[in-house]
């Protein structure tokens, strides 16, 4: 029934799509990492805003996390794709540049992932900050640390430590969300699988191969985050 077998399709032979699929998995990883990093910046800013005593900043932080977690990621990606270049073009006009400004799909995709991911990271950072021991902060103050020094030496290391498990989960979200970037034409793993499925009419093999590669990516990153967590917990006494 099948004119071309599974192993031939995912292999590296003449009719094989193995190299293309691996390359696409690399694009998936790259766009997810960029998105995650953008999300880290936005997430820590949003967490700081939500924790601040400034009511306007807190409201903006809340607005951001509420909206981005309340609408489908697919819509966010479309809005970035269609709205992003419109907005950029308008900004360009204001600055006197008279043409259309488009962003490469990779950048659009990474930004869209980052904006959604930031909303989740904000909650992780906020939770981690709230679990800091008040005593340590007071101790730091009493030995005369400046705010900046206290932030660098006490707050950041501990927030990161508490945040690692949560960040691991949010990273997985970024990785899985990157599959949606296929809708704006970035040839990442799912898109490549779709191209293969359409071209060979063997959708099952291609989507199966894609699923296996995604699983490999999430497994490797889960292990990496576990190792990081173990490292960061050196010298921390565990309960029980």
């Amino acid at each position: 029934m099948t004119p071309i077998g599974f192993f031939e399709i995912i292999g590296f032979g003449e009719r094989g799509w193995g190299a293309a699929l691996l390359l696409a998995a690399g694009v998936t990883l790259a766009v997810a990492i960029c998105g995650f990093l953008v999300g880290s910046v936005l997430g820590s800013l949003a967490a700081a805003a939500k924790l601040s005593r400034n009511r306007i900043a807190a409201a903006i932080g809340d607005f951001y996390t509420t909206v981005l977690r309340g609408i489908p990621d697919l819509l966010v990606i479309y809005l970035f794709y269609f709205g992003g270049s419109l907005a950029l073009t308008n900004v360009g006009r204001m600055l006197g540049y008279d043409g259309f400004i488009g962003l490469p799909v990779f950048v659009t995709g990474a930004l869209a992932i980052g904006v959604v991911n930031g909303a989740y990271q904000a909650e992780v950072f906020r939770g981690a900050y709230l679990s800091l021991s008040k005593g340590e902060l007071e101790a730091a103050k009493s030995v005369g640390m400046s705010r900046a020094l206290m932030f660098r030496r006490i707050v950041v290391p501990q927030v990161l430590r508490y945040a690692i498990p949560g960040l691991g989960n949010v990273w997985q979200l970024a990785l899985k969300e990157s599959a949606l970037i296929s809708v704006i034409g970035l040839v990442e793993l799912l898109r490549q699988a779709q191209i293969g499925a359409g071209s060979t009419r063997q959708p099952f093999y291609f989507f199966l191969a894609a699923a296996i590669l995604y699983l490999a990516l999430t497994t490797i990153s889960t292990i990496a985050f576990q190792k990081a967590e173990e490292r960061s917990m050196r010298g921390v006494r565990r309960a029980g």
Partner: peptide, 19 residues
């Protein structure tokens, strides 16, 4: 020459993604 899903091909033209 760039690739674009059919459903968004006119809106993306208007948004200036291509000419």
């Amino acid at each position: 020459i760039v690739q674009q899903d059919w459903a968004g091909i006119i809106p993306a033209l208007q948004a200036g993604q291509y000419d």
